[in-house]
Amino acid sequence: MTEMEWKEGSAGVLRLPSGRLVRGRGLRDPMPAGHPPQFGVYLLGSAPEEFGWTSRWVRWRDFWVPADPSYAKEVLTEAWRRAEGERVEIACGGGRGRTGTALACLAVLDGVPPAEAVAYVRRHYHPRAVETPWQRRFVGRFTGDPRPAAPPRQEP
């Protein structure tokens, strides 16, 4: 691990089974000490101000699910890929419901079965992550392998 990476155990940092580290946080809380993110995903009802690093905004009202689930999946897949070598932050207002839901979706992309992803995030990120039944259902239905499909086999 280089000094530019976040450390497991730091405020809001979640280690996925692959070893990727992702930081979840609430935007109403002060920015954690240390290095800023290199990429951020912001789950809010309205567009945020600029952060000073590359970011994506997913329209997502508090206590709900994303307004555009396919765009959310695209952005979360990008975040999962970038987390292999960059500091990635996922954030909403309070850092629990929407952030926890998105982190559980990243866990699914990382190989955690959808039925176990909420428990994984509650155990490793925050015990009250993923706040509503429809957020849990969103995670349970979140699927998809972010790795590119193998090219079709050609017959000799």
Rank of each mutant, 00 (worst) to 15 (best):
A150H: 13
I90W: 03
T2W: 06
S70I: 02
G12R: 04
Y120I: 00
A47R: 15
G52N: 01
D29P: 08
R98G: 04
G94N: 00
Q135V: 09
G12Q: 01
K73S: 12
K7L: 15
T143D: 04
I90R: 12
V41P: 04
V65R: 07
E131C: 05
P114N: 00
T2N: 10
K73E: 11
M31N: 01
A79D: 05
P127L: 13
H124D: 04
A47D: 03
C105T: 01
R82F: 11
V139T: 02
R81H: 14
E116K: 15
G144P: 01
E74M: 13
C92W: 01
T99F: 07
W64C: 12
T101N: 00
G26Y: 05
M31Q: 11
V41I: 12
M31P: 02
A11P: 03
L109H: 00
Q38A: 11
R98M: 08
D110S: 09
A79Y: 02
M31K: 10
E89N: 04
R147L: 14
L76N: 03
M31I: 15
G19R: 14
Y120G: 00
A117G: 01
V13P: 03
R28F: 07
H35N: 08
S18C: 03
L27P: 08
G97A: 06
R56C: 05
P156S: 09
P148M: 03
S10E: 14
P36T: 05
R123T: 15
L21M: 12
P146N: 06
L21C: 09
G140Q: 12
P17N: 11
V13R: 02
P32W: 01
V58M: 08
V112D: 05
L21A: 09
S55P: 02
A67Q: 11
W6C: 05
A150P: 12
F51D: 01
A115R: 14
A72D: 04
P30S: 08
W53H: 11
T101E: 07
G12A: 05
K7T: 15
E116V: 11
A47V: 15
V41T: 13
G34F: 06
W60N: 08
G34I: 00
Y71L: 15
E78H: 09
P69Y: 07
P66S: 01
V139L: 10
K7S: 09
D110N: 06
